[in-house]
Design a protein around this nucleic acid. Structure first.
Lengths: 201, 201
DNA sequence: GTCTATATTTCGATAGAC
DNA sequence: GTCTATCGAAATATAGAC
């Protein structure tokens, strides 16, 4: 932030772009600073001047990318419960099944083993935020008696688990993801199950 | 198999044990053949004589571990639907949230980016097998009209997605996993939701 | 701040004695 | 089959000129 070099803001962007593509392509351990520098068309020393070391560079890329993706998903403001859930689900699936999103998620998972703070930061910036939004919505939607907040939280977690669970698992393992029509079947099933569970009790 | 060295079956086991712990500890790229050999108290050349190269050694470890874990989970043979689901869920959660299972899964995910066959082999040996078992059961349980098989398959996938989705995601990111009492809440919710969805239509 | 050049370490894999 | 010793490549990080 305040550490930003006084000149050449362009080089910094070149490095970020190049580093992101190399990291997502080869993972953290598999990416080399030489390749990052080469792809950024910049000397390696310039990379070190801007980001200090490999780990810090990676953390900077992840933080930036998480913010971008989180702000892409907007909570629907209008419509009945079914429609809100369907819109939310559609956005969620579209964002999380992007090849770049899968590659980023994969790399974060891989690196969380040696750097738990990274996983925690990602969880707080991504899954936790959106889950909490849905839990709040479920707890105070119009025309419904309020449910236990912890129960709403579990319902929200299971809703997103149903959406991302199967398809994202396949994607993480490098397997083909379902066709859009099949995705819609998952989406509708998840919405139906949440509604059935949410209105009882 | 037939390639097994004629003598010293003990060394091979030492190498497998050491390699597994090093790979799960540091990932594929982060693990070095030197450390594996040192931990196995064996020379590096001996490792190469047994497994050829680093990738083959890793694949052998993953295959063995998948088999072990798959055979640990047994499909319940008796009980009503709710009880069968509950038992299945309990086994599934206990096995998949083991630290070793998480570490293995993490490493497979990480390496699937560069080696899709590994992810495919894991999926076929693990998730696919158990999901298919549940789908068959749902489709032919006594006293119920048969449902569409593809629908049963989706229900089964969503059942396991609900079970592993949230908790396993947290574990993969290095975050704390819920207390056993909280796990039971997830388990019961998942069973209830599947029953509600499975008996309608 | 940016470059070229290099120091230093560590890796996967191999050679050769026994 | 197993060991010690080592090669050649590639890695992270730094030094010093401009």
């Amino acid at each position: 932030m305040a550490r930003t070099p006084t000149s050449s803001p362009g080089k910094r962007d070149q490095i970020i772009t190049a580093a992101r593509s190399v990291f997502l392509e080869s993972g953290f351990a598999g990416a080399s600073m030489d390749r990052i520098a080469a792809r950024a068309r910049v000397s390696k020393q310039t990379v070190y001047n801007h980001f200090g070391c490999k780990a810090d560079l990676f953390a900077a890329i992840v933080r930036k990318r998480c913010d971008e993706m989180t702000h892409t998903l907007v909570f629907p403001k209008s419509g009945d419960t079914a429609e809100v859930l369907r819109q939310l689900a559609r956005q969620f699936i579209e964002i999380t099944l992007t090849p770049e999103a899968i590659a980023l998620y994969r790399t974060i998972i891989c690196e969380s083993a040696r750097c738990p703070e990274l996983g925690a930061a990602f969880y707080a910036a991504g899954p936790d935020r959106i889950t909490e939004s849905l839990a709040e919505y479920l707890n105070q939607r119009p025309g419904q008696s309020r449910m236990n907040l912890s129960r709403a939280r579990i319902l929200a977690e299971q809703f997103f688990a149903m959406l991302h669970g199967h398809l994202q698992t396949r994607a993480l393992l490098g397997l083909s993801t379902a066709h859009p029509t099949q995705r819609n079947a998952y989406l509708d099933q998840a919405v139906a199950m949440l509604l059935a569970a949410g209105y009882e009790t």
